[in-house]
Amino acid sequence: MIELSNLLIGLAMGLNLMALSSSRLPSVIRAAAVQGMVLGVLPLLLEHQFNWLIGLVSVGTIVIKGVVIPGLLRRALRAASIDREEDPLLGYVPSLLLGAAAAIGSVVLADALPLRPEDAGSLLVAGSFATLFSGFVLLIGRSKAIAQVCGYLILENGIYLFGLLLINTTPLVVEGGILLDLTVAVFIIGIIVDRIQRAFDTLDTRKLTTLKE
């Protein structure tokens, strides 16, 4: 089981690099969506015995992160009729290099941290840190609101990966609450993105500069 889950986590780390290097917004959205679906499968592999609540969380994650939120983002993209991020604050090659460095650094860091024996062979911690960092780079390095939302989604995926370390012990009520909170967060962000599009007729967040000292 651990090989299969490591394979999926490796795939998720690859998707980070894809999101960082792509200039086309639809492919950034696709990377975040596929990553969300990959992570949705992981709880089924990691849980010791199958339980219908885990199944529910898993299906919920796949549907929300893989289908619903990307669908909303694509709709916003169509409404704004933009396709690429023209001039990001941080270029594609530097972001890709940062992402790659983060992937290597995370493996080293995860090795240095004390882990339980049963987690030592797993890529969970390394994958989590790498994904978190990639999301952060997208969040601050891009100027289009949609790319920033994708960055937030990827950042959140990184935290979700770390949360899987605790899946056997945290009560499911708490996990469900966390998932709900994060989903609502992304929905609200989506609504505000839509409002920005209508009010400013752009999704370039660099236009939002009235408020400053």
């Binding site: 952060f136 937030y152 959140e156 770390f162 962000i189 505000i192 939002l208 408020l211």
Partner: peptide
Amino acid sequence: LEATWKYLLVGGTGIALSLL
């Protein structure tokens, strides 16, 4: 709207850090 967007982005990152 601009204030809300900044609140959401900074607040969202705070949310993420405290969850981690």
